[in-house]
Design a protein around this nucleic acid. Sequence first.
DNA 1: ATGAAAGCGCTAACAA
DNA 2: TTGTTAGCGCTTTCAT
Lengths: 337, 337
Amino acid sequence: MMAKTVQTIEDIARLANVSKSTVSRALNDSPLINQETRERIQSLAREYNFRINAPARNLSMRQSHTLGFVSYACSGKNFSAENMFGLELLGGVSDGLRPLGYDLLVVPVEPHDTTWAHQYLNSGRVDGFVLTISTRKQKMINELVNMGIPFILWGFPQPNSSFCTVCGDDVTGGRIATEYLIRTGRQHIGFLGGPMDEIEVKYRHHGYELALQNAGRYLDPDLVVYGDYSHTSGITAMKRLLEQKPDLDAVFVNSDVMALGAIQYIQSCGKRVPEDIAVVGYDDLLLARYNNLPITTIRQNIPLAGKLLAENLIQYIQTGVVTNVNLPVELVIRKTA
Amino acid sequence: MMAKTVQTIEDIARLANVSKSTVSRALNDSPLINQETRERIQSLAREYNFRINAPARNLSMRQSHTLGFVSYACSGKNFSAENMFGLELLGGVSDGLRPLGYDLLVVPVEPHDTTWAHQYLNSGRVDGFVLTISTRKQKMINELVNMGIPFILWGFPQPNSSFCTVCGDDVTGGRIATEYLIRTGRQHIGFLGGPMDEIEVKYRHHGYELALQNAGRYLDPDLVVYGDYSHTSGITAMKRLLEQKPDLDAVFVNSDVMALGAIQYIQSCGKRVPEDIAVVGYDDLLLARYNNLPITTIRQNIPLAGKLLAENLIQYIQTGVVTNVNLPVELVIRKTA
DNA sequence: ATGAAAGCGCTAACAA
DNA sequence: TTGTTAGCGCTTTCAT
């Protein structure tokens, strides 16, 4: 039995005794085609296992029907460590894209390269970009906005410029983490943040303060330190915190990876988690769940975030509608607090 | 200042006072073009920030210049848990591809779908596929081979059929893990494998036996159990092992994720790692390094693997040369053994 | 070494 | 509702 494979819509047209355009219309569910012809052609296409040629279609339509997922590339590390979060998001975006008929292209970006956007967009390889944590530096975003590049950001919107975003509810995240610590009887609750200038970090800190104030607690600046989301910075920031406040008995850490570092330092001091010091992380990555001492953390809904990033960027590309969505977070209680 | 942007090679041709073909040749470093014209055109292209249109080029050349990275898609989980390894590999492949002028497309595959290969290949979206763990079921591989689909596999070659592969040296991995355990004085060393029918697992087991035999040890079948790479299976397999051999004092586990599960079970029995039972994992994922009790493990060179997967698949596509490479592994000593 | 022209497979404006 | 035709922007014979 020979493989029933047909190469072009012209082949189908011949088999169906119609013109190329009719086939094109039928395959694209055009409204101005006869119900019956449409079905005949579609079943023919199915029977012959026909796949429409993407380059040709994209060339003709001046659209690639693919989105670029941007991440830093540096010697095999473009998807690691601090980027764990972005990595898990990739799966979500990819899943969100599928039902919409779009593809996902990996766009590795060199840290100081500013041409990548034009490179991928002008060459017609992608229609827009999904930016995740660590690629969303302020300067880069401003450039993208100025250049009119279609993109969506995992993060907060900016007051003065308008682009699509999806973010987590960081104020609530910071608040419920801290409330839980208060509720479980902790007296001196530290805040171990991500980079101090990031808006997310500010919101989480705000939530932290809110919880403390509602409980009538004093806000001690010595309880607040910052890191950069890395494992190492979790260690050093925890060290600093403990030096400033030796009687600390809990800490809310802005990422699971930093929390791992913090826990490591705490234990190296001979203190126990959670007995002596309770730790709450952020993100709920796999390594939080699988850590040998499973981490109590604030879960971000990563699959949903991916889905919305995909859907809303496509919507923006097609209609120009700018959306900004804020996703709920959730406390996951495990062993560290 | 207006943006100097030019859309097509025809625009460049006009500016350079040459024909489209000449521009095309110049941009592609064709040998039959004048050195001087080439440079003139290239600098013009640079100056005007010109990017060649990919769909047009791909259509004309009948090549997409992109590779598909295949992974299971199932409700946001296509890149998680058991797939951690594949996830880290994605970064390596992406980096390996860049210098070669190829792009990486994410190809999410539904577990029982068998049409994805044709779908992506016949539509001209990719020129070939990179298959990683969990997408490389025997049946699927055979189908791909029969259909003549270009792909490269992370895994071992098959004796009877010929396709490109990159794999780790699992025999050595199993051997050096076990040797280390022997060297550090362990008497009853267990083997907690991945799926029993996987060739990798057989090789690792072979290395385990080799080390034991070389040390003049008896091979006790009760010391050998199997899981499926999942965290849960690490827990249950460890339970079984401990029931069969209560005096066990070490275990070589076939993946870091399973090792995490095994450690969790061991500790839940009130035993200590590594004092009572030493654990060696496999892969050296980030969660092995960042685990709160950092895991002693066999490192696979993931960035190198990614680079070779990329390079060798492209070579195969372009020349038909089939390569099979076996990468060295390395023992990383941390806290669990 | 360069140009002219055909064609890659598709969509879409226009005609029928 | 369907067909005809003209591109989309590139590569590549075939001339020159």
